[in-house]
């Protein structure tokens, strides 16, 4: 795992905090999105915010969250998923 304090991590944590209506200091890397109070609609809105911020497309179907291959299980997983998608975008 790469440095989790880089700008991608900071931006993702900022988005999660804003969606969850909490301060960034309340967001821990091992938290699940549900721990932040994000339900399925909150998750969909969070993914939209991430896609708009990074100009990427996150494969995600609410009916089968595992199917798209995007690991959104924890805050650190979301950061890694975004990092991979940003790198793929640049490649």
């Amino acid at each position: 795992m790469k440095d989790l304090n880089d700008h991608i991590a900071q931006k993702v944590i900022g988005i999660l905090a804003a969606q969850a209506l909490v301060g960034v200091s309340s967001v821990r890397l091992d938290m699940q999105l549900s721990d932040l109070g994000l339900d399925s609609l909150g998750t969909v809105e969070t993914i939209f915010a991430i896609e708009e911020c990074f100009d990427i497309s996150v494969p995600f179907n609410a009916n089968d969250p595992a199917a798209g291959g995007a690991d959104l299980s924890t805050v650190s997983a979301v950061i890694e998923t975004v990092r991979n998608l940003v790198e793929q975008q640049a490649a």
Binding site: V44, I47, F48, F60, N61, A62, N63
Partner: peptide, 8 residues
């Protein structure tokens, strides 16, 4: 599409 509930 935005709701992420549509099947492909």
């Amino acid at each position: 599409e935005g709701l992420r509930v549509m099947s492909q």
